[in-house]
């Protein structure tokens, strides 16, 4: 068997998908041909190498960019994803990190400055001063509660007034809508017949019609 013919079937030989006779034939050739034997080994090495080919993780924003270019809607994210992205962004963001460090330093310095004062105040506390402080606090709370109650009453009164006004207006509108409509027959009575219409010209008012019917023009009906 020639090397070229072996090469063509080497792939199937490694996969053991050839008939038994051909498998035997290639086996014999490989035993006697160093080059084809080496090629067979490298082919098997190659099979195991494909797993090493990199599988890349696309940038997280790629899906967003695709969605914006197609449906025009950004990706929906779960609460967990949002929190993760915020935390990831925040922790990696140098400005946020600097801000957090400054805020922590500020809190520490403030505590350091305030703690002695608080300690000093607490040292002067007595039972009488605590009782008077509580009394003042209760009075203040009562006063605030009264103010809130007054405000509530005022707002309730306003609400009642506007509610009644609106309700009355609506009722009058409904009454107008439900008022009896003049029937077509009555309208027809008011329209003069053709022979009278020529006399009246453009003036079709009630007075003009009555005048034409009675023949008088006293002007009382107007």
């Amino acid at each position: 068997m020639e090397c070229r013919a072996t090469e063509e079937r080497l792939d199937e030989y490694i996969a053991s998908s050839l008939p038994a006779e051909e498998m035997e034939e290639i086996s014999r050739h490989l035993g006697g041909c160093a080059n084809c034997s080496l090629l067979s080994k490298e082919l098997q090495t190659l099979q195991s190498m494909w797993d090493c080919y990199p599988v890349l993780e696309p940038d997280e924003s790629l899906v967003d960019r695709i969605l914006l270019r197609t449906s025009g809607r950004p990706r929906t994210r779960s609460l967990q994803e949002r929190l993760q992205s915020i935390l990831k962004y925040s922790l990696l963001n140098p400005r946020f990190a600097a801000g957090a460090v400054l805020a922590t330093a500020f809190v520490l310095v403030s505590c350091g400055l305030l703690l002695p004062r608080i300690a000093e105040q607490y040292s002067e506390l007595s039972l009488k001063s605590v009782a008077s402080f509580m009394d003042r606090s209760v009075h203040r709370l009562y006063g605030e509660a009264l103010k809130i109650n007054e405000a509530r009453s005022e707002w309730q009164a306003r609400f009642t007034f506007y509610k009644n006004t609106t309700w009355n207006k609506l009722r009058s509108v409904v009454e107008r809508i439900e008022a009896p409509v003049e029937r077509p027959s009555e309208l027809e009575e008011r329209i003069p017949p053709d022979n009278e219409r020529s006399k009246l010209g453009d003036d079709w008012s009630v007075a003009a019609i009555r005048k034409s019917r009675t023949g008088s023009n006293t002007g009382d009906e107007v």
């Binding site: 080919y53 990199p54 599988v55 890349l56 993780e57 696309p58 790629l62 899906v63 695709i66 969605l67 197609t70 449906s71 809607r73 990706r75 929906t76």
Partner: peptide, 22 residues
């Protein structure tokens, strides 16, 4: 249905990206 399209993009995005890279 935009949610369905999003599912398609999420399901095949990485694969298409890797195919392009290859």
């Amino acid at each position: 249905d935009e949610a369905a399209w999003e599912l398609v993009v999420k399901a095949y995005g990485k694969r298409i990206y890797n195919l392009s890279y290859r």
